[in-house]
Amino acid sequence: MSDISMWFAFAFVLIALFLSTWQKLGMGKEIVIGTVRCTVQLLAIGYVLQFIFHSDSYLFVALFVIMMVTVASWNASRRGAQLKGIFWRILLSFGLTAVATIGSMVAVGLVTPTPQYLIPMSGMVIGTSMIVCGLYISQMNRETETARGEIEALLALGASSRQAIQGTLRRAVKASMIPTFDTMKTIGLVQLPGMMTGMIIAGASPIDAVRYQILTMLTFSSAAAISAVMISLLSYRLWFTNDSMLRQDAE
């Protein structure tokens, strides 16, 4: 793609701005900021990745993955700002998920341990985990408020905090995983995912592109399950006070 073609691509943003103005949506500022941030961030990351790929250093790969995990953890933790310590629990959950999934793929030979494979795959796994954890926290906030009476009754009857919140926890974990598996049910029929489309546009065989996309989607399913279960195990106590009472600021 030429530089001129890239500049013409910004015409799509003008369409969004026109529609926002026409319908008085008040989205002009968000559209402009989002466009600028997207462009700057992707260009910057492009140069960084080019440097890392040429250096072929695992130290730079590790630092880049740590950066992705940290940013994703901060973004997901904003949904639970009232929960003290949620950031570190999400960080640990993301780290364990990335190590388990990427490590398994490297161990069985599905992925070559080079920066060109490790960084993109790690980014997709961490991105999936970020969405799952964000959904989990939002759902837990809603579920604990809806089931407050039930949870407090169980606590009054002598149940532990884990026993009292187990049903709520299970519903929140399930809700956080549903979007990932719903996507798997319709992929290829409703949408052609970005990785597969990018490979085809770059000239790869559609069959090879499909194989990599299958690998990616199966990895997503594992990442979604691991991160959802891990964050639930690590964080459920945060919805209780130190004396095992349900927090009043759960929302």
Rank of each mutant, 00 (worst) to 15 (best):
S2F: 07
W7T: 09
F12A: 15
S20L: 15
Q23F: 15
K24R: 07
K24C: 02
M27N: 14
G28P: 05
K29T: 11
I31L: 08
I31Q: 00
I31K: 04
I33P: 07
T35V: 01
V36F: 12
C38P: 04
C38F: 13
T39N: 14
Q41T: 02
L43Q: 03
A44M: 10
I45W: 09
G46A: 11
G46I: 04
Y47A: 04
Y47W: 04
V48L: 10
F51G: 09
H54Q: 15
H54L: 10
S55I: 11
S57I: 13
S57N: 15
S57H: 13
F60W: 15
V61M: 11
A62G: 12
L63C: 12
V65I: 14
M67T: 08
M67D: 00
M68P: 08
M68V: 05
V69H: 00
V69N: 00
S73Y: 00
A76W: 03
S77I: 01
R78S: 02
Q82I: 06
K84M: 03
G85E: 01
F87A: 07
R89W: 00
I90A: 06
G95Q: 07
T101W: 12
S104T: 14
M105V: 12
V108D: 07
T112A: 04
T112W: 03
T112F: 03
T114L: 15
L118Q: 08
L118S: 06
I119D: 13
S122M: 09
G123L: 08
M124F: 10
M124A: 08
I126H: 01
G127S: 04
S129Q: 04
V132M: 04
C133V: 05
C133L: 02
C133N: 05
G134P: 02
Y136K: 01
M140V: 02
E143P: 09
T144S: 04
T144L: 03
T144G: 02
T144W: 01
E145D: 11
T146A: 03
E150N: 07
I151P: 01
E152A: 12
A156Q: 13
S160D: 01
T168M: 02
L169E: 04
R170P: 00
R171K: 10
A172F: 07
A172I: 04
V173G: 05
P179M: 05
F181E: 06
L189T: 15
V190M: 14
Q191C: 09
L192Y: 07
M196C: 14
I200T: 04
P206Y: 05
D208E: 15
V210Y: 14
R211A: 06
Q213L: 11
I214A: 14
T216Y: 12
M217P: 02
T219L: 05
T219A: 06
S221L: 12
S222T: 13
I226E: 12
I226L: 15
I226Y: 10
A228L: 08
V229P: 03
M230I: 15
S232A: 13
L233I: 05
S235Q: 00
Y236M: 01
F240I: 05
F240M: 05
D243F: 10
D243R: 13
L246E: 00
A250G: 13
